[in-house]
Write a protein that binds this DNA or RNA. Structure first.
Lengths: 152, 152
DNA sequence: CCGCTATTGACAATCATTCTCAACAGGGAG
DNA sequence: CTCCCTGTTGAGAATGATTGTCAATAGCGG
């Protein structure tokens, strides 16, 4: 496993910015690393998973940690317009992926599309922006929700 | 102007779904039609504009109307991950546009990119989804916020 | 003009997220 | 190895956006 090495690197990232490594931060990062590829969690879902073992990690810390890890680039913040954010491991080396979201049942399917990355760099560059993240989101009705009629 | 004709068409759209045309709905739609091209408003901003004249329109109705108009396709709901939604006229015939958002000051620049539309149709089709909206968002730091340093 | 039903306004309620603050704990200095 | 400074945590209050509740009001088809 690269788990140990990763944590050491994270600790270094944190220290450099004046932050500290804590068991809570390590636990949360570990949860994301153990997640099946491409899974993303909301703060509430993460908090729920953390509760299982012992006392768990407080909701406030869960939120704080997610924001912190996202701010240093370890997590990616996703907003599916559902009213709450989701987070996933940033995994810089992996191909960035995008989402197809059902507006009825909120299931999200992810897909890759390399061309979107270059396009993003081009557009951001044209306006003098330093690009931080690209999110291409397709909203629609999944096959199942189409069947179940357009009722609301 | 096509204002009158548009309202009649809207009324028809509403009636067909069992809704009614009301002065509040007409006023709100008119505000969007009078907006400079590509401008978008949050519920709070819209409510503020409506207040000026007389009593205005209640905040609850403002929210309800935005959601209603978006649900029948007259408005497009935008989520810039700032914690509140924005709305703009859907303008089906106009070229869809996308946004470049500064993560520091939240300014949004819009741009067009036709290729994104076909790509969206292709991907949605591949998964059996009926496409409703496409949102391509680039998050980054605008030139001004880059200058002001990365401090938080 | 009437009546049924959608809509509105005022405000309480909810949901996600952030803030406050006292108790606690990394981790570098000695 | 202990101490101390400062970042961090947990608990709960507070905030901000949005939605729900309900009585009063008003489209609009008849």
């Amino acid at each position: 496993m690269t788990a140990r090495a990763d944590m050491a690197r994270v600790q270094e990232d944190l220290r450099r910015r004046g932050y500290r490594m804590t068991p809570q931060r390590e636990t949360i990062l570990q949860v994301f690393q153990d997640l099946p590829d491409g899974t993303h969690l909301s703060a509430e879902e993460l908090h729920e998973r953390l509760k299982t073992s012992d006392g768990g990690i407080s909701l406030a810390t869960t939120y704080r940690t997610l924001k912190l890890l996202a701010s240093i680039g370890l997590l990616r913040e996703l907003d599916f317009a559902e009213g709450h954010k989701h987070y996933e491991l940033a995994a810089e080396q992996a191909a960035p992926h995008h989402h197809l979201i059902c507006v009825a049942c909120s299931q999200a399917i992810e897909f890759e599309q390399d061309s979107l990355h270059q396009l993003g760099l081009d557009v951001a560059g044209a306006y003098g922006f330093r690009l931080v993240d690209i999110q291409y989101k397709l909203y629609g009705l999944c096959p199942r929700c189409q069947e179940q009629g357009g009722r609301k």
